[in-house]
């Protein structure tokens, strides 16, 4: 293999810059495998949650049906789904070698993610006021651990994408940076998919 040029001129910009290098290919496959592991992680969390759902020490504790409200969860879902879509736009512009638009859409993705996070924090504060806390019951522990782990993933994703925006601001787009952006976008989609399951299993099944 000849010396690899990371800064590919725009006329030779590949259709899939993220997997144009060996490192990029490895990152792509490796990250999918990481996500497989993450799936097992969240599967364990969901199983724990289902086992402990509505498991409270006494009758005066609020249960899932008393707590969860679909409208708020729906708004949160919309925030996250939309952010997934905007990250797709970012990747689309990355593939077209349009750096400025990629940065823009990544920025919008971060803003939507922040919106989601703000709503989630608001929701947690509400529940805490109602006496549903991490320490109040096994149900509470399982609820906050599941949602909290997801929320933590959102935070990591936001920090990650923000750092990418900053670090790439000067460097611009190359097949080296493209792989990084693509990986972050994959991660963001995964977080979104997990949320869809949370919405279904925690909120929908909760209020039913």
């Amino acid at each position: 293999m000849a010396h690899m040029e990371y800064n590919v001129p725009s006329e030779r910009w590949p259709a899939h810059p993220e997997t144009a290098t060996m490192e990029g290919k490895n990152k792509f496959v490796g990250f999918w495998i990481f996500l497989a592991g993450e799936t097992a992680l969240f599967a364990s969390l969901f199983a724990t949650y289902l086992a402990l759902k509505d498991s409270v020490p006494s009758d005066d504790h609020l249960l899932a049906a008393d707590l969860f409200a679909l409208p708020l969860a729906f708004v949160m879902t919309m925030f996250l789904l939309t952010s997934s879509l905007t990250s797709v736009y970012a990747v689309y512009h990355m593939r077209n070698n349009n750096f400025a638009k990629m940065q823009l859409w990544l920025g919008i993705t971060v803003l939507l993610g922040l919106g989601f996070l703000a709503l989630e924090i608001y929701e947690f504060i509400e529940y805490t006021h109602l006496g549903h806390t991490f320490r109040s019951s096994a149900f509470g522990s399982a609820f906050y651990f599941l949602l909290g782990t997801h929320g933590f993933h959102v935070v990591i994703g936001l920090v990650w994408i923000t750092l990418l925006i900053i670090r790439n601001a000067k460097r611009g787009l190359s097949v080296y940076t493209a792989a990084k952006v693509n990986t972050a976008a994959l991660y963001w989609h995964f977080i979104d998919v997990v949320w869809v399951f949370i919405f279904t299993i925690v909120y929908l099944l909760g209020v039913l």
Binding site: L41, S44, T48, L52, R135, A138, G140, S141, A142, F145
Partner: peptide, 27 residues
């Protein structure tokens, strides 16, 4: 990953007051 989760449950119960395994609070 399931072990990671299991150990987190144990850590949280022992150190941060959750009740995954405490029968009296529904664990």
């Amino acid at each position: 990953p399931p072990l990671t989760i299991g150990i987190f449950l144990l850590m949280f119960d022992r150190m941060f007051g959750s009740s995954f395994f405490l029968v009296e609070t529904g664990g």
